[in-house]
Amino acid sequence: MNTHRKQRIVLKVGSALIAPQRQGCSSRYLLAIAQFIVRCRAKGLQVILVSSGSIAAGTHRFPQNAHDEQLSEPAQLALKKAMAAAGQTEMMATWDKFFDFPTAQILLTHADLRDRERYLSIRDTISTLLTHGILPIVNENDTVTTDALKVGDNDNLSAMVAAAADARSLVICSDIDGLYNKNPHLHADARLLPEVTHIDAGIYAMAGGSHSAVGTGGMRTKIQAAEKAVSHGIDTYIVNGFKESSFNELLAGRNPGTLFRGSDTPMLERLHWFTHTVRAQGEVIVAPQDEVHSAADCARISSDEVLDVSGTFAEGDTIVLRNHDGTELAKARSNYSSRLLKFIAKQDNSELVDSFTHQRRLIATQDIALLSPKATPMEEKS
C-alpha cells in the first residue's frame, strides 16, 4: 500500500453483489463486505463506499413493466430512473443495517465532478464525514442524470472519488479474481496477473466483458478506473467480490487479485482533475506540431495553425487539441466558442483575425493537460 497518502480506502461494490437476482437487496455477499469495512475502520483506515445497485434493487418494485420490451425508449428511460429512485432507499437501508456507526448518502452526476467548485465541495464533504466517523456511501444519481451528465459506470466514478478524497487505495470488486491475460471463462490456460506497473494498449487488450447480467461495468471500465487512480498515486486492486477470502487476504496485507501500482510521481491534483474528470466538448485540429514539450507550447498555438474545429462548445469549455495526423496533444480550455473559432480559422484577413485574438490566446493557460507522452506539465496554479 502507498504509505505516503492519507489512511483512506475507497471500496467499489457493483450491482451484482447488491441485488444478484434483481429481487431487491440481498445480504448474501454484502455481509462479508460489511465486515471488511468494519475491520478496516478498526485498523484506523477511513473507508468510502462507492455502491452501485439502485436500479437492480428497485426493479422488483415494477413487476408489470420491468421486462416490457414494447415500451418506447423515453418510457424505458423514465422507468429506469423510477427504479433507481425506489431502489436507492432500499440499498441505503440495507447497508445501514450492517453497521453500528452512521452512514451518509452522496449522489453525484458528472456535472458535479467536472465543475471545479462543486468538485472541491464534494471533497470537503467527504473529508468532514470521515473526520466525524461517518461512512460516506456514494452512487451516481441515476434518477436525474442524462447522457450528457452521467459518468456511466461506478468503476470510473470510484476512481474520481478516490482522487477527490486523496485516498491511499482503491479496491474494485469484480466477478472474477482480477485481470487475466485472456478470458478465464473461455480459456483454461488463462493466467492471473498479480501486479501491473504500467497500463498500456496491451493491458486493455486483455480486458473482456463482464459475465454479470446485472452490472454495467466490465473489465475495461475497471482498467480505465485503475489508470485514473494510479496516475494520482493510488494503489488499485481488482478483486473477486463474491469471495469472502478476497477481503480476508486484503486485511492480512496480501494481494488476492490484481494490483495496479500507484505512480511514484503522481500528477498534480488540479491537473489530474482536469485530465481524468473534466470531459472535452469538442476538438480543434491544428497544423503539424513537431515539438510539444510543455503547456506553454500549446498555449502559443495561433489562429493560422487551426485547420478544423469539430463539436459544439462555448467559451470556457474544455476541448482536445489534435495534430493533423490525429495525435492527441492536450486537453485545454478554449477562450473562444466553436463557432467563432471556425470563423477565425477561415479568415485570410490577418488584421481581422488580430482584432479578435490580440488580447486573448486561443487556449486558456490556466488549464492545460498534456496528452503527448513527451510533454511535461506546467506548474499547478492554486
Rank of each mutant, 00 (worst) to 15 (best):
23 Q>A: 12
85 A>F: 02
2 N>M: 00
48 I>R: 02
98 F>C: 08
39 R>E: 12
56 A>M: 01
130 L>W: 11
98 F>S: 00
45 L>V: 09
20 P>W: 07
75 A>K: 12
42 A>P: 07
44 G>L: 00
91 M>T: 02
40 C>H: 07
84 A>N: 10
41 R>I: 02
55 I>C: 05
80 K>G: 11
90 E>D: 15
74 P>M: 05
109 T>S: 13
131 T>A: 15
76 Q>S: 12
123 R>S: 13
48 I>E: 03
100 D>S: 11
111 A>T: 12
80 K>N: 13
95 W>V: 04
113 L>W: 04
75 A>L: 13
88 Q>E: 08
13 V>D: 01
92 M>G: 08
125 T>P: 11
21 Q>S: 14
52 S>H: 08
57 A>W: 05
120 L>G: 12
109 T>E: 09
46 Q>W: 08
49 L>D: 07
121 S>V: 12
18 I>M: 01
120 L>S: 06
30 L>V: 03
32 A>I: 09
67 H>T: 03
103 T>Q: 14
51 S>R: 10
78 A>V: 13
99 F>I: 06
2 N>G: 09
64 Q>V: 11
112 D>H: 12
66 A>E: 13
16 A>D: 12
127 S>E: 15
62 F>N: 11
52 S>W: 11
64 Q>Y: 06
79 L>T: 04
45 L>P: 05
47 V>W: 00
15 S>M: 06
33 I>Q: 00
96 D>N: 14
83 M>E: 12
18 I>F: 03
41 R>L: 03
62 F>A: 06
126 I>Q: 04
73 E>A: 15
125 T>E: 10
95 W>C: 11
27 S>F: 10
106 I>D: 03
19 A>F: 07
17 L>W: 05
45 L>F: 15
6 K>V: 04
45 L>E: 08
76 Q>W: 00
121 S>N: 14
19 A>M: 03
103 T>R: 09
85 A>H: 05
12 K>L: 07
20 P>M: 04
47 V>A: 07
103 T>Y: 01
8 R>E: 04
41 R>H: 00
14 G>K: 11
16 A>R: 04
108 L>P: 01
60 H>M: 09
64 Q>W: 01
105 Q>Y: 00
90 E>W: 01
89 T>R: 14
37 I>Y: 07
62 F>T: 08
99 F>A: 09
79 L>Y: 07
38 V>T: 14
115 D>E: 01
6 K>W: 06
109 T>F: 09
87 G>P: 00
100 D>A: 11
95 W>A: 03
91 M>S: 02
35 Q>L: 12
96 D>M: 06
123 R>D: 05
70 Q>E: 12
61 R>A: 12
7 Q>C: 08
98 F>W: 06
35 Q>F: 10
103 T>K: 03
93 A>K: 13
54 S>C: 00
10 V>F: 06
116 R>Y: 11
83 M>P: 08
70 Q>N: 15
68 D>T: 05
20 P>R: 00
32 A>G: 09
42 A>M: 13
38 V>I: 13
112 D>Y: 01
122 I>H: 02
95 W>T: 04
15 S>G: 08
15 S>I: 10
68 D>A: 06
45 L>W: 15
74 P>D: 02
56 A>Q: 09
64 Q>K: 13
94 T>H: 13
61 R>Y: 08
104 A>D: 03
70 Q>F: 05
59 T>Y: 00
23 Q>K: 15
98 F>G: 01
98 F>N: 05
77 L>R: 13
77 L>W: 11
